[in-house]
Design a binder for these strands. Sequence first.
DNA 1: GCCGATTTGTCCGTATGTATC
DNA 2: CGATACATACGGACAAATCGG
Lengths: 245, 245
Amino acid sequence: MPKSKYDQIYKDLKRKIELNEFACQELLPSENNLIQTYDCSRNTVRRAISRLVTDGYVQTMQGKGVRNIYSPAQQTAFTIGEIESFRESAIRNGQVPSTKVLVFVELTTDETLSQKTGFPVNSQIYYIQRLHFLDHIPLILNHNYFRKDCVPGLTKEIAEDSIYHYLEQDLRITIVNSRRIMTVEKITEIDEKYLELNSEEYNCMAVVTSHTYDSNGIMFEFTQSRHRPDSFRFQDNAVRRLSHI
Amino acid sequence: MPKSKYDQIYKDLKRKIELNEFACQELLPSENNLIQTYDCSRNTVRRAISRLVTDGYVQTMQGKGVRNIYSPAQQTAFTIGEIESFRESAIRNGQVPSTKVLVFVELTTDETLSQKTGFPVNSQIYYIQRLHFLDHIPLILNHNYFRKDCVPGLTKEIAEDSIYHYLEQDLRITIVNSRRIMTVEKITEIDEKYLELNSEEYNCMAVVTSHTYDSNGIMFEFTQSRHRPDSFRFQDNAVRRLSHI
DNA sequence: GCCGATTTGTCCGTATGTATC
DNA sequence: CGATACATACGGACAAATCGG
């Protein structure tokens, strides 16, 4: 799918960095050098590099070069700033994903549910409760709400596999962006039961609430992901912008 | 400080979006239009727009235009992907920040502390414990570790004001990026005491662990921020990349 | 301290492809 | 089909920072 030149260069450099082909704290080849290597224009290598910067893989220094600041720990955990399905994230980390569907119903939003999810009142919704396992350990309890008109034909079988795969491959929906909010909330009896938690030990958990939009600008998904507190790990690379100063 | 053209355009468009000068779900002026408005090249407006995309302010659609998908809720909370000091974040959200220094000591890293922080063994370190208040309510308990050779002359007074302001304005250090990991951990007696928590109600909390680097690629800061669970709120805008497909 | 070579940062103009209407 | 709009890519120019002689 990714056929653009800068994306290929980005992936190639990323791979080389992960494979330690450039020593840590050392400089990558200069832009002029990369232009020759990849036979492309300066803009193109710069696009690739700027993505590595936001990924926290390298740091650029005017007049000096591009320093490799990658540390292997970055590969694990959930990534921020990027939408990844549970299955994709598991595979990336070399773990075995599995999913159990607890609830699969269709419903119509009333005032309360509309408030909670952000969908209009009287929307037709698929409500799905799923338990996600990593290496056979239950880690995440997901409450998914999908707009039925955007995501027709959803079934329990699809939900057990990968909903995102169905959306993108079968329905040809383009997922664009997702607003996520991370909070800490008290555990419920449902959490306790399915995630095998003990409220004596942990009485709260990490919750990721997300509103996801397609290429028509329509919010087609609202999801609340409830994570086992002892395995929740979200990772971020933040950059300092001059704007603050 | 920000004198670059694309940054000015970015800020101007951002401001206009926040002020609702473009209706939500409506299109922004086209690139050709913006080129005339700002009297600049196409690349320059595209740079500004691409930043608005990663901020979750707009969504681009090939062949159609750029849609405003901003919602006011985005302004609050902590932002992800960007380094902001506690003081800056508070001011942005229109709240009153204050800070109390609980501990200010110098120490040398032993094997254990080196493991924990990632600093080399036998490094000279400032260790600072600070309590951050928002509108006079204690919300965050911070454990800061600064490399003394990178951050000379730090005092308790500075720590009570803003360390980042001192680093950037007085020491002229360029803060570049910060690797952060969010987890949920059990509360300690210290948390309970200073954040006025009740372990019956909440026995765990959100913890943000960060490694921050300067323009020399040196990790000069290790910080653990322990947040009151009921006020912790981290926000993110994630985009879907084609790479997954 | 100066100068020139190198390297990244910003900006411009242009051409072509692709999607939408 | 043509017009419009965004996406990718190329090439060139100059500025700013760094480094070695």
